[in-house]
C-alpha cells in the first residue's frame, strides 16, 4: 500500500476550503495550518497564467524529516504516511529545517505537527477531510498500488509534476498540469 494525493491545478480555485476543513477536523489552532494554497503567476499582461496548488506534507518515500529526527518521534506508518508522535517530540525543529516543502510547524503546545493524511479517517474507511470537502473535487486520494484508486486513475491520463524533485525526497503529492 502506498498512499498518495493528486491535485488538479486546472480545477483548483484556491478557495482555501481544504485549509479550514483540515483545521476543524484536526483541531489545528487558528494561525497555523497543515495544508495551504500557493498561487504562482507567470508571464506578463495580457499573456498571464496562474497555477493554484493546494499543498501539504508530501509523505516522501525518502523523508529527510524522519532521518533527522533525534528521538524517533517522526516515523513512517502503514501506507507510507509520515507521522509525528507528539509526546515523543521534543520540539527541536530539526525536521522543520530539513523539509524542502515547509510542511511542518511548531505547535504552540511544544511539539511539531503536520498533515497525517487524516489516518484516523482512513481507518474508518473515510477519505481525508480536505478531499472530502473540496468544492471543485480537484483532490484525488488513494493507494497508488491499487490501479482503481482515485489517485491512480487521476494520474493515468494526465501529465503531472512533483515539487522540488531535485531534493531527491520522492514526494507523493502529484500536481496534475
Amino acid at each position: 500500500m502506498r498512499y498518495a494525493m493528486a491535485i488538479d491545478t486546472k480545477k483548483c480555485v484556491g478557495c482555501g476550503d481544504c485549509v479550514v476543513a483540515c483545521q476543524t477536523e484536526n483541531n489545528v489552532p487558528i494561525g497555523y495550518c497543515r495544508d495551504w494554497i500557493v498561487e504562482s503567476v507567470a508571464g506578463s499582461y495580457p499573456n498571464v497564467e496562474i497555477e493554484l496548488r493546494s499543498e501539504r506534507c508530501n509523505h516522501c518515500d525518502n523523508s529527510p524529516c524522519v532521518r533527522c529526527c533525534p528521538t524517533g518521534a517522526s516515523h513512517i506508518v502503514e501506507g507510507g504516511i509520515v507521522k509525528v508522535t507528539h509526546n515523543e517530540c521534543i520540539g527541536c525543529g530539526a525536521c522543520i529545517q530539513s523539509c524542502p516543502y515547509d510542511a511542518r510547524y511548531s505547535h504552540p503546545e511544544g511539539y511539531v505537527d503536520k498533515c497525517t493524511f487524516c489516518d484516523h479517517r482512513l481507518a474508518k474507511g473515510q477519505t481525508t477531510a480536505c478531499v472530502a470537502v473540496c468544492p471543485t473535487s480537484c483532490l484525488y486520494f488513494g493507494d497508488l498500488e491499487d490501479p482503481n484508486s482515485d489517485v491512480s486513475k487521476a494520474l493515468k491520463n494526465r501529465s503531472w509534476k512533483v515539487l522540488a524533485p531535485e531534493a531527491g525526497t520522492k514526494p507523493q503529492l502529484y500536481f496534475l498540469t
Binding site: 484556491g14 482555501g16 485549509v19 495550518c33 495551504w36 494554497i37 500557493v38 498561487e39 504562482s40 503567476v41 507567470a42 515539487l163 522540488a164
Partner: peptide, 10 residues
Amino acid sequence: AAGAGAATLG
C-alpha cells in the same frame, strides 16, 4: 522555486 512570484493564501 521556479522563480515566478507566488502569493500564499491562508
